[in-house]
């Protein structure tokens, strides 16, 4: 991608009077980190980057905005928000539009066709992180790591994130401005994580998830990072009724993860953020992708493609499968 073009476009967008800020990515403070950035004036657009390290899904910030009570007489800020999206992120935008969580006129979507991002854990395992900020770029099919003036070629299959191996929509499905040329969708791999578990029997699966869920510390980063977890009053924060107790034990953790996965059934756009941020490495994506697979195979539905469509769980077809009914 042409960064010059990105920065120029961003500067034009930010210069408009009716734009509050632009959400993009900038270099992080060390190593391979990239940090989301909120840009309010033209000069700061120089910080913007778009690279295989830009894993964070910025759509989260659209619904994460807090609305504290305003002082008397002050009007709410109704200016637009611009944001950069990759293919998977744009599906989250579409899904939120379907759910009428945001209004289309309130956002400016800058689409960035994405040839695939990396899994930072895989990259670190292969090329240990150093203190100085390191760049990674796309180069043909593969990546190239720029560190201390040296260019190290990195094979795509070695470090590509799992969600990207399964990605079918590398090009944004919703956008106002598109930066660069669309990329050609690649051959997706089989979702072995889900298939492997499907092949086990229920007792083995229970054992597997027991081990995973027991580890959860309930920091709720999976919930907070998810662009589609935006209920104003989340059941996890509610005390009356208490659906899920705050106690951290296997029972409550399992209930939490079942509830979280289920609330995303037919909504999850498989951006993989929940899995990426989990501090105790629970493979949460498998739960979501399993449900996405069921929804796709049995109901012929895929979320986040048509902004004018209907939500999966708030619609039905008379001939939905009912082989499970007694």
């Amino acid at each position: 991608m042409d960064l010059e073009q990105l920065r120029k476009t961003a500067a034009e967008v930010v210069a408009k009077d009716d734009v509050k800020y632009l959400i993009g990515w900038k270099k992080g403070t060390y190593g391979y980190r990239v940090s989301p950035v909120f840009i309010e004036n033209e000069a700061d657009t120089e910080d913007l980057i778009f690279s295989p390290l830009c894993t964070a899904n910025l759509v989260t910030y659209l619904t994460l905005v807090e609305k504290p009570p305003l002082p008397r007489g002050q009007k709410p800020d109704t200016r637009k928000v611009a944001l950069m999206v990759k293919g998977c992120d744009s599906r989250a935008v579409a899904q939120i539009l379907v759910e009428k969580g945001i209004e289309r006129e309130q956002i400016i979507v800058i689409g960035c066709p994405c040839p695939g991002v990396i899994d930072v854990n895989l990259l670190v395992a292969k090329y240990p992180e150093v203190a100085e900020n390191t760049e990674l770029k796309w180069s043909g099919e593969d990546f190239v790591l720029i560190r201390g003036g040296e260019e190290i070629p990195v094979k795509r299959e070695e470090v590509l994130a799992e969600k990207c191996r399964l990605c079918r929509y590398p090009n944004p499905v919703v956008s106002d401005i598109m930066i660069g040329e669309p990329v050609k969708p690649w051959q997706t791999e089989e979702d072995t994580g889900v298939s492997e578990l499907e092949g086990k029997n229920v007792a083995e699966r229970w054992e597997y998830w027991e081990e995973q869920f027991a580890r959860c510390i309930r920091c709720y980063s999976c919930r907070n990072v998810c662009p589609l977890c935006y209920c104003e009053d989340c059941i996890l924060d509610r005390l009356n009724p208490t659906w899920i107790n705050r106690a951290v034990n296997f029972s409550e953790n399992t209930a939490f993860h079942i509830a979280r996965a289920f609330h995303l059934a037919g909504r999850c756009v498989e951006c993989g953020e929940c899995e990426r941020v989990c501090p105790v490495k629970i493979p949460l994506g498998r739960l979501n992708r399993k449900l996405a697979r069921e929804v796709r195979d049995n109901y012929g539905f895929e979320p986040g493609l048509d902004p004018d469509g209907k939500p999966f769980q708030a619609s039905y077809k008379p001939d939905d499968p009912e082989d499970f009914i007694l």
Binding site: T60, L64, R218, C219, S221, N224, V225
Partner: peptide, 13 residues
Amino acid sequence: SASCLGCGTCTYL
């Protein structure tokens, strides 16, 4: 704090 997600990772860890 602009990019903070409000999760508990920093404090829990």
